[in-house]
Structure formats: C-alpha cells, structure tokens
Computed example of a mutant assay.
Amino acid sequence: MSNFKVYPIPANNTLFINSEKEEITSIQLLDSIGKILNSIEVNTNAYSFEILNYTKGIYYLKIETKTGKKNIKIIKN
C-alpha cells in the first residue's frame, strides 16, 4: 500500500492528496458515521479535493489504489 500525503489538516476549502508510488483509483468522502458524501474515480498520483461546501466537522477520506485502501481522518474548518 502506498504512502499518502493529505494536506492541509485542518482544511478550509481544498485538500491535496498525493501518492508517492501508486496511482490513486478512487476517493470517497465520508461523514463521521460512515455515510458516503462524495465519491470519485480517478487515475492519478495527485488530486485536489474540494470541501468548500461541507460544514465544519470531522470527515474521513477513503483513498483506494489497485493494491489496497486507506482511511484518513480530516478536519474541515
């Protein structure tokens, strides 16, 4: 599984997601109880994810590659 960099945390408008080695295939934004709020298919090592229209709080990003997936806790200011 690739190492990911997700920044800034906390974030206001945009999250930047970078994978050092593997291509990211999908990204999901989930609320604190696991409900999927946004889901996109991508094929890239870097992606800008807009969170401007979401309320302040704690969310999770589920980032998936061809070899696995990782959940990352984020905070929206």
Rank of each mutant, 00 (worst) to 15 (best):
V6F: 00
Y60T: 12
K56C: 08
V6M: 00
N43H: 07
Y47N: 10
N71S: 15
Y47C: 05
N43M: 06
V6S: 00
N18I: 14
S2C: 10
Y59Q: 09
I9Q: 08
E41L: 10
G57K: 00
N53P: 00
G57W: 01
G57P: 04
I36D: 09
N53Q: 11
L37D: 09
T65K: 02
N45W: 01
L30V: 10
A11M: 07
N3G: 12
T65I: 04
V42R: 03
E22V: 06
T55S: 13
K62L: 14
L61I: 08
D31T: 06
T65Q: 04
T25L: 06
I33L: 11
N12E: 15
G57S: 02
S26A: 14
I36S: 13
F49D: 11
I75E: 14
L61V: 09
I75L: 10
K73I: 11
G68A: 11
L37A: 07
I17P: 03
V6T: 02
N77K: 12
S26K: 07
V42T: 12
A11W: 01
L15Y: 09
I40G: 04
K70D: 14
E22F: 00
E23W: 01
I27V: 11
N71P: 01
L29W: 03
L29S: 09
S39T: 14
I36M: 09
I58A: 07
T25Q: 10
F49G: 10
K76N: 11
D31A: 02
I9H: 07
K21E: 13
T44A: 07
N53M: 02
N13F: 01
I27F: 01
S48K: 11
K76I: 12
G68Y: 00
